[in-house]
């Protein structure tokens, strides 16, 4: 089953970035409104809470950094941290059993920490980033990401809970 997971990780990492690239022009190209790779990372880490999730999050972020204009690491680190946080939480609570509001808060936190990490990395190395933590783009991201996660992943999965994914599969 390892090759299946590898394929899934690759597909999710590349696919989420490609879709992100396609959708980016819809909300001012380059602005982090909806961070689809982040959402996919959270989804994967919550569904498959294993060490591969860390790798998946890091690869997804790294690919995001490889897109033109990016800085290597600024997205990879936050996504790695988010994946690690989700895995740590998973050890303590059943993330899949979280209420939608709690899940939304988790995505909110992930987005916030990702944003802070992104800003720290860019500021630390004096890379220019439009706006700041309180810019309308980042604030909008904090709101829209949980909402999109709910709509795309949480609600459909809860609907089809009769056949849930097996943990660690």
């Amino acid at each position: 089953m390892r090759w299946k997971k590898a394929t899934l990780i690759t597909a999710l990492a590349i696919g989420s970035n490609v879709v992100q690239g396609i959708l980016a022009p819809l909300w001012n190209y380059g602005q982090p409104y909806i961070d689809l790779p982040l959402l996919v990372t959270i989804l994967y880490a919550s569904r498959y809470p294993s060490a591969e999730a860390l790798f998946m999050g890091w690869v997804t972020g790294a690919i995001q950094d490889l897109t033109p204009g990016g800085t290597l690491g600024v997205n990879a680190v936050p996504k790695l941290v988010v994946a690690y946080t989700v895995l740590t939480l998973e050890e303590k609570i059943e993330i899949q059993e979280l209420w939608p509001v709690q899940m939304a808060l988790l995505v909110f936190y992930a987005t916030l920490s990702g944003t802070i990490g992104y800003l720290c990395a860019t500021r630390l190395f004096q890379r220019e980033v439009e706006g700041g933590l309180f810019s309308i783009n980042f604030l909008f991201s904090l709101l829209i990401n949980p909402l999109v996660y709910m709509v795309l992943f949480q609600l459909p999965l809860r609907k089809g809970k009769s056949a849930p994914l097996q943990k660690g599969e």
Partner: peptide
């Protein structure tokens, strides 16, 4: 599993920082 995760996390974090430094 926990130690593996931590090791992988730290390794990737280190790798990221290296990449970041190199890119900068």
């Amino acid at each position: 599993e926990r130690a593996l995760r931590l090791t992988l996390f730290l390794s990737l974090l280190f790798l990221s920082l290296v990449l970041l430094m190199a890119d900068i």
